[in-house]
């Protein structure tokens, strides 16, 4: 099969979308579990989180996985863009008056908008933490690890910053609520019982992830009021 077929085929495009999406979703679990360390008592969280960040950034295997993840994200975004543009072309001139929205959920139709919100959040997130950690001039803690905890902790004292995070996690929740089971459908799960199961898993996962990620900045903010 030539590469041209891969990019022209409406089903294969979706397979890329689902596999990359599921991989990113799996990463979210690991990321959330790691971040829960931020909620430990202050002193313990401080040293442990910095130690954890040091561990992640100095392990070759984790580094490789990280680059695979970045590549996955980029494929997910580019594929989404391609699908959206092609679908728009398929829709042609469209309806002059369009009331078709009543037939489906808002978030299933607007995965792109939700995705853009998440992408904007990621840019901010990478700039403030990832870039700072890798290239920024940040202090070290008493164990000699870069004090990323302090930066995170300080940023979550700002109400507007926490608000941006929470909005992004709500968008993430809706993105996952459609994305997870939709990915399974694209992969061909057609048994009625499994369809129900993947819908339950998808929605439960979406709620857990968006709630889990949102309570971390919220709790740190409230603790410091």
């Amino acid at each position: 099969m030539g590469t041209s077929v891969i990019f022209k085929n409406t089903l294969i495009r979706k397979i890329f979308m689902s596999l990359t999406g599921l991989f990113i979703a799996f990463f979210l679990i690991i990321h959330l579990l790691g971040n829960f360390q931020l909620l430990l008592p202050y002193e313990q969280a401080h040293l442990q989180y910095n130690w954890y960040s040091h561990l992640l950034s100095h392990n070759i295997i984790i580094e490789i996985i990280a680059y695979v993840l970045y590549a996955t994200l980029i494929i997910h975004i580019l594929d989404a863009l391609l699908i959206t543009l092609e679908n728009r072309k398929s829709n042609g001139q469209g309806l002059k008056v369009d009331k078709r929205g009543v037939n489906s959920s808002w978030f299933s139709r607007n995965m792109g908008i939700l995705g853009v919100i998440i992408l904007l959040f990621l840019i901010l997130h990478f700039k403030d933490y990832w870039y700072m950690y890798k290239f920024g001039n940040i202090p070290v803690d008493e164990k000699g690890n870069k004090d990323i905890f302090l930066i995170v902790h300080e940023s979550f004292k700002q109400g507007w910053y926490v608000a941006i995070y929470i909005v992004a996690f709500i968008a993430l929740g809706f993105h996952l609520a459609h994305g997870i089971w939709s990915a399974f459908r694209t992969l061909g799960v057609y048994n009625k019982w499994y369809i129900k199961l993947t819908k339950y898993i998808g929605i439960t996962f979406a709620i857990l992830m968006s709630l889990g990620f949102a309570i971390i900045p919220a709790i740190i903010y409230l603790k410091n009021l």
């Binding site: 085929n9 679908n87 299933s108």
Partner: peptide, 14 residues
Amino acid sequence: MDAEGFGSCTNTEA
């Protein structure tokens, strides 16, 4: 289906 220019299914179920 692709040759006719129909779009990808995004599972909105409409």
